[in-house]
Computed example of a mutant assay.
Amino acid sequence: MRVFISHAWEDKPLALALAQLPDFVDVWVDVRELLGGQTLDPTIVRAIEDSHVFIVLVSRTALAKAWVAKEVDWALAREAQKDRVFVLPVLIEPGIDLRSCAPPFAAFAERLFIDASDTREAGLDKSRAAIGRTLFHWASDWLDQMEPRGDSDRRFVEALEHDLIGFQTRLFAVQAALAWPLATLVQDEALAHLVTVKDEYNRFTEAFIPRLKTMEDPIRWRFGPPAQKGLARLSTFILNEVYHGAAFALNDAIESVNAYEPVLSRDPAALAEADARRAARVGALKPVMDELVERTADYVDTLKT
């Protein structure tokens, strides 16, 4: 579990002391002093974004620091995006009334916080234990929600691969069905097959495309930012070049099938033109599908290794 600790520079010694957490916790503590007017630099943003939990050490000094407030603001926005608990306030100074604090710290008045104001060694041990227990319980809750059956990364990758291949297989079936000339496609058996594979493709993509758009956070959680960026590139290709691109263009051929009886069968020139468009649409899909197969295989291999 990766944890970011936000704190005032003056509280650095206590931040480092509290950072001595159980082995399952990987703590990020910034060792630089930031200027009061400085905006969040990319290093800080990446460190917060790549963390599972954001801990903020609340002291009267921290409450007066503009950059600590900026980090908390960013972390609370990240928490809302994640739709799960992400920010853990830790009070390191006694007598602070969170309800009377200015935003964004006032938001902590109605949530779980840990009192770590006893800075004696015994108090620090107690505070570290409380933080460790909280992080362990949070991690357990997330695993129960994300993997109620204890699914492994291997099963996760297998399910993703199954979906990606399922998308390809159904689109290949539509492509193959439309490879026949229009005069053949309108025959009963060929038309029934086309309707079947088209309906199967549509049913599958109705679930697959929205699911694909939500996969980046689980990928980041399991395999890290590089894998998340790889999925983003693959998803962009699927959505733009395949689903909304070459695959969507096949609708023109399907419209020609629907127009065959009332229009095209009576107009040889129009039929020849429509058949040429159908062949072009099907031909244009082939290199896109070849690239999709290659990209999918390469990406899945990176997750398996």
Rank of each mutant, 00 (worst) to 15 (best):
A8H: 01
K12I: 12
A15W: 00
A19V: 07
L21R: 03
L21A: 03
P22H: 04
P22E: 09
F24K: 05
F24C: 08
D26N: 11
V29M: 06
V29P: 07
D30F: 07
R32S: 15
L35S: 15
G37M: 08
T39L: 15
T39M: 15
T39K: 13
D41K: 10
D41E: 15
P42D: 12
T43D: 15
D50V: 03
F54N: 11
V58Y: 02
V58M: 05
T61W: 02
V68R: 02
V68H: 04
V68M: 05
A69F: 01
A75I: 05
L76F: 03
L76G: 08
A77P: 01
Q81G: 05
D83W: 00
D83M: 06
V85I: 10
V87G: 02
P89V: 09
E93W: 00
I96D: 10
L98R: 02
L98C: 06
C101R: 07
F105S: 15
F108T: 11
E110M: 04
E110G: 08
L112A: 11
I114P: 08
I114M: 09
I114W: 09
D118V: 05
A122I: 13
G123K: 07
D125R: 13
S127M: 06
A130K: 06
A130D: 11
G132Q: 07
G132Y: 00
R133W: 09
R133V: 14
L135Q: 04
A139C: 06
A139P: 00
E147V: 00
E147N: 05
S152T: 13
R154T: 10
R154I: 06
R155K: 09
F156I: 01
E158L: 12
H162T: 15
D163S: 11
I165C: 10
I165P: 01
F167K: 04
T169Q: 15
L171M: 14
Q175P: 07
Q175R: 14
L178T: 12
P181T: 12
P181I: 10
T184F: 04
L185F: 13
L185P: 09
Q187F: 09
A192K: 11
H193Y: 11
V195F: 03
K198R: 15
D199H: 09
D199P: 03
E200T: 12
E200F: 04
Y201W: 13
N202L: 15
E206W: 07
E206N: 12
A207Y: 00
F208M: 03
R211Y: 02
L212V: 02
K213C: 01
T214A: 07
M215Q: 14
R220L: 02
P225H: 00
R233I: 04
R233E: 13
H244Q: 13
H244G: 08
G245F: 07
A249E: 13
L250Y: 08
D252L: 12
V257M: 08
V263I: 12
A272D: 14
R277Y: 04
R277S: 13
R278G: 13
A280D: 13
A280Q: 12
R281G: 03
R281C: 14
A284F: 11
A284L: 10
L285Q: 07
P287F: 11
V288G: 06
E291C: 03
E291R: 07
E294N: 09
E294G: 08
T296C: 08
D298P: 00
D298C: 03
V300P: 01
T302I: 05
L303A: 04
T305L: 01
